[in-house]
Design a protein around this nucleic acid. Sequence first.
DNA 1: CCAATACATAACCCTATGATTATGGGTTAA
DNA 2: TTAACCCATAATCATAGGGTTATGTATTGG
Lengths: 112, 112
Amino acid sequence: MMTDSRSAERDDATDALFKALSDGTRRALLEALVRDGEQNVQALTQQSGVSQPMVSRHMAKLKRAGLVTARRTGRETWYAARVKGLAPVIGWMAVHGALWSQRFSALEGLGE
Amino acid sequence: MMTDSRSAERDDATDALFKALSDGTRRALLEALVRDGEQNVQALTQQSGVSQPMVSRHMAKLKRAGLVTARRTGRETWYAARVKGLAPVIGWMAVHGALWSQRFSALEGLGE
DNA sequence: CCAATACATAACCCTATGATTATGGGTTAA
DNA sequence: TTAACCCATAATCATAGGGTTATGTATTGG
């Protein structure tokens, strides 16, 4: 499944990932989950400084990018960071950052 | 409401970096530089599939993000990948990706 | 059953951004 | 000097995207 050397055509996963990380509010939400563990929307809303609907939309984007998981219990939705979702970022840097490949080579077995 | 500076600090560098990497065309341009070394705008334009002005604008953005360097010689501008510009990405993942911090700790001395 | 709660969606506004073609500003060459 | 060349910038357009408030859909509790 090598995407040929003709540059990344439709690397939707990588694209969604970098796009998800390209917004500061979204990164802050993800950071909160990494730091303090699983949280529901209202908890995230209080920290975020933006409205609840905006948090829901940000979380949806993070989820589609594979960076968080969602677990609905009753009327609450609990989000948790999914750190291994960052793997494609590592992969991209390992492949396209020639100077890094040596250092990154030890990280390539993270597919779980 | 003041923004909670604890989690949402104005990390302009990181923001610019992720934003620069969030576009596929821009990543392809950067990949071309990493793969084939320093190139001028016309060479990059031929590979990119977009217009020359668009390449110039993409390169400007990559440059502001610290991912490429520009060297003007006469009427040509030669761009080269600056792989250490990815350092903030590593830094961000090291800090906010708890599960990664052990593996990343060895990479933190790349500041220059 | 009814109200309150928790989250997601919808409708809307405004800015950012990717893309184009046209133009301008220097530089090389004839 | 003039013309061709290389690149950047301007003008323009369409769409994506972050933000808000309003509304909808379940779920819990009195």
